[in-house]
Simulated assay, not measured.
Amino acid sequence: MSSILPPRGRGTASNPHNRFAPTRSEVEDDGWYQDEAPPCRATEVRSEQAKTVISRNQSPDVGFDRSVNPYRGCEHGCIYCFARPSHAYWDLSPGIDFETRLIAKTNLAERLEAELSKPGYVPRPIALGINTDAYQPLERDQRLTRQALEILLRFRHPLHIITKGSLILRDLDLLGELASLNLVSVAFSLTTLDNELKRIMEPRTASPGARLRAMRTLHEHGVPVSAVLAPMIPMVNDMELERLLEAARDNGARSAGYILLRLPLEIAELFQQWLQAHFPDRAEHVMSLIRQSRGGKDYDSRFGTRMHGEGAFADLLARRFQVAARRLGLDRRDYAGLDCSLFQVPRAQMSLF
């Protein structure tokens, strides 16, 4: 299995074929020397005119039934990202394409307003940024997430945000107003307090310290914050679980959760390549623990087990989390209790003539 180190600032050097590709090409040594073409490093952005922007789901193990993703792909480059396989639907690779060939839904504001205005629409909290991070670097220029927040505030519509980006502080004015109406909660994904591990595991995310400072700032401005330790990876970052929970509590988090590493579809190969490149001494042990927690496979997609796994290692991780979360007061459930009763479609401004 390839163990090529990725370009600095990227999560992977690999660009495997997506599972829907009608043809595949393979490199063969024909005896003529030539340098291998390096993987694409520059970020490319193309626009999409989306037909709809509110996605629905019926999964029993996530806490929302609808989400809005301003972008496809994510420049953060997290090697473990469960959303990587979705890039195959656009005839792109879940590998480095997912990090560098991004799609912006430039008509998001128009479509979101239209969908919220439909007769009979029943409000429930929208999860903003699930299949992509709504505060990835691209948001600085595109500002699609901020447009979505402005619309949700006008409609008095509740939302949850999960992010690894400190750029969220740019929108403190809107988030503060939403929080004053009990319409928003923010979860920060925390994976490590080690800057070097962060650099190779999720290269273009905010540093651990920047995430914690953002969490504290939001908390101090009345925005409810929580922490999601996702993913916990055996023998890579699981030993930080208690320290991550303590850091989250100390910076304003009032609740927390965790997710065991998930490796659906193409992610399994990408992650194993990453392990061989960065942790060759323990790669086999890491995968052994993962498979022990997934019924002997790289991944088990069954509802009820896919988030936390099962078996000795998974049970021990769950117990460690329960004990630490209880000790730190982070074991409360759905503390935000967002208000859906304020929702209203804004009246169009009447003409003066």
Rank of each mutant, 00 (worst) to 15 (best):
S189K: 04
M235R: 15
L108D: 00
S293Y: 03
R216A: 13
E139S: 09
A21V: 11
Y80W: 13
Q322L: 10
D339M: 13
F64S: 04
R282Y: 09
R347G: 13
E48F: 06
R66W: 01
A21H: 14
S86D: 07
V286Y: 03
T43G: 03
D29W: 02
I259T: 03
D281K: 12
M350V: 11
P6F: 09
R140L: 14
L275W: 05
R306V: 11
V68A: 01
M350N: 13
G222V: 11
S2A: 15
R111T: 01
G77Q: 05
S14N: 10
T163I: 07
F271C: 03
G176T: 06
V236P: 01
D339L: 08
V184W: 00
S180H: 11
D29N: 15
L270N: 01
P22D: 10
N237G: 08
A206Q: 03
Q273K: 15
K105R: 09
G165F: 01
Y299F: 09
F321K: 05
L153H: 09
D194T: 13
G165K: 02
A148F: 05
D250F: 04
A134N: 10
R156A: 10
E44N: 07
Y89Q: 15
I259F: 13
V286I: 14
A348F: 08
E196C: 10
P7Q: 13
S55I: 11
L5N: 08
E150W: 04
P119G: 06
R124C: 12
S226E: 09
D334E: 14
P234H: 07
V323K: 12
S301G: 07
D141I: 11
I130N: 02
P234M: 03
H17G: 11
P38A: 13
L260A: 05
G95P: 03
Y121I: 00
Q322P: 08
L5V: 11
L342C: 12
A83G: 09
A314L: 13
Y33Q: 08
V62W: 09
L169V: 14
S3H: 09
A13L: 14
A324I: 05
T205I: 10
N15L: 15
I168V: 07
R332T: 15
